Computed example of a mutant assay.
Amino acid sequence: MSERLAATARDTRSLSLAISPCPNDTFAFHALAHGLVPDAPAVTVTFADIDVLNSRAAERRDDLVKVSYGALPWLLADYQLLTSGGALGRGCGPLVLTAGRTDLRGARVAIPGTRTTAYLLFRLWAADRGVASIDVVPFEKIMPAVQEGRYDAGLVIHESRFTYPSYGLTALADLGDWWEEQTSLPIPLGAILARRELDGAALSAAVRASVAAGFADPSASADYVLAHSQEMAPDVVDAHIKLYVNEFSLDLGDEGFAAIETLLARAADADLVPRLTQPLR
């Protein structure tokens, strides 16, 4: 472990860690949050949904924070990207849901946030589909709003992939499938950032060890995951973890970085985000 991280670990002040209560985050960070990673610094955990986490990062409120890759261009002046702990993958993209509608011309669409990967993918996919309006709605309220007819379509993420049929909704598009067809790359969803003054390499190693501990003994984190899973059924929780926690959670690797760079370059070309001014690695 580096001298800077060792000094932090000896310090009585915990690092602040802000993540979502979703099973992929609680599974990945269980060991770190409970002091089970040898020599890693103590952390104090705050839970919030992704739109709130993006705002917390913009305000520099946390030492370590989960954000959407769609927010990265606004955050890299203050934060560095860790190579572990995030969510990338295949077959795990956002869905565009409707109550039977087969196109979006003139549609009102509910989305979970504007500085999200889901939003960027939706805007790239829907550029010529005639959407009338887009509103930000808390993600847990999107499916009920579409079901009740208050919106014509909804953009959903996370566990909604598994539960939307119970609302009588259908998937008009899987934006993860669309992205993979366009690029042959995994879809970059959530990133883990650390303040630039911290030792990013050492923190990446600590987070990687936490993820590895979860893989080694999934039962150890089960109670913690279920306690924060917003009453998801255990089989949905297991499916969620298997989908979002994978080899990219251990290390982004060249393919992971290529996916991030491609998404943000295409979004910048479409004037959806600023071009990166800080290197990713």
Rank of each mutant, 00 (worst) to 15 (best):
Y151L: 03
D62V: 03
V109P: 11
E140W: 13
Y119E: 03
E197K: 14
R101P: 03
E180H: 09
V236L: 14
D199H: 06
G253R: 13
R4D: 04
P188C: 08
D251N: 15
L193E: 07
G100P: 00
A18H: 02
S84C: 08
A265V: 04
A173E: 04
V146H: 01
W74F: 14
R281C: 07
A33P: 03
T44A: 10
Y167H: 15
K141M: 03
T102Y: 00
A209Q: 05
K141V: 02
E197A: 12
L155P: 02
T163E: 07
G89Y: 12
E59M: 12
Y119V: 00
D49Y: 06
P73K: 04
P94G: 08
G168W: 10
F29R: 05
L264K: 12
R195A: 08
N24D: 15
P144F: 14
L272R: 11
A213D: 15
A127H: 15
S20G: 12
A40D: 12
L198T: 06
I19Q: 02
L97E: 14
A28M: 06
G253C: 13
A233M: 12
Q230Y: 08
S219C: 01
M143G: 01
I241F: 12
L280K: 08
P186D: 05
A99T: 13
A213L: 15
D223K: 08
A213N: 11
